[in-house]
Design a protein around this nucleic acid. Sequence first.
DNA 1: TGATTGGTTAAGCATATACTTAAGTATTGC
DNA 2: GCAATACTTAAGTATATGCTTAACCAATCA
Lengths: 100, 100
Amino acid sequence: MFQALADPSRRIMVERLSRGPASVSELARPLTMSLPAVVQHLQVLEASGLVRSEKVGRVRTCHIDWAALKTAEDWMLERRKNWELRLDRLGDFLAEQEKG
Amino acid sequence: MFQALADPSRRIMVERLSRGPASVSELARPLTMSLPAVVQHLQVLEASGLVRSEKVGRVRTCHIDWAALKTAEDWMLERRKNWELRLDRLGDFLAEQEKG
DNA sequence: TGATTGGTTAAGCATATACTTAAGTATTGC
DNA sequence: GCAATACTTAAGTATATGCTTAACCAATCA
């Protein structure tokens, strides 16, 4: 997931998809690269679980899997919470010191 | 930043640092690779701004830059908010339809 | 039916990444 | 001072990544 978000082009694609579903060529429009390259990025995003797509007729429509995005967000939140807990315990300890 | 978090070894390092500062060899302990490899990962983390370190005597002490971690978290939150806003507008639209 | 649109497959290539080992350089403890 | 500790530097290598072009397939439309 972080791997998938590591590339700037892929982040542009995710950014676009965060505003709603889009076809492959719509995703390609703002990017200065060939269509196959865009499809390869799309494959990375799909493999990571961040994006899903269905093909209807000849157009493939892509959209974000919001639960997956939240997973990455939560990982970081978890680290931050860990830290805040630590600060709290330090605070308690210092308060104990004060009293004692 | 996402690039930095893309590697599992580096995430282990960040995980460790989220529990408090650590020296280079402490960071290396759980990892099955040479010390220079760990230092290279550390350089990536520092370059991304996620981690900082100071050397005192012969030991380098590393710690997370929490503001930087929050930046990545916020990027994802921003995408989610975008989406929720869209859902809200859709909701409003449907409510309008209902009324009209 | 034949051109166009939208996407896919395959092959190849240049650069980046994630390591390795070997050989340093400072501190610190005895 | 001498050894151990805690890195640091340098050089090399294998694999992964991010592209490219060329050729292909399948749905649409004039």
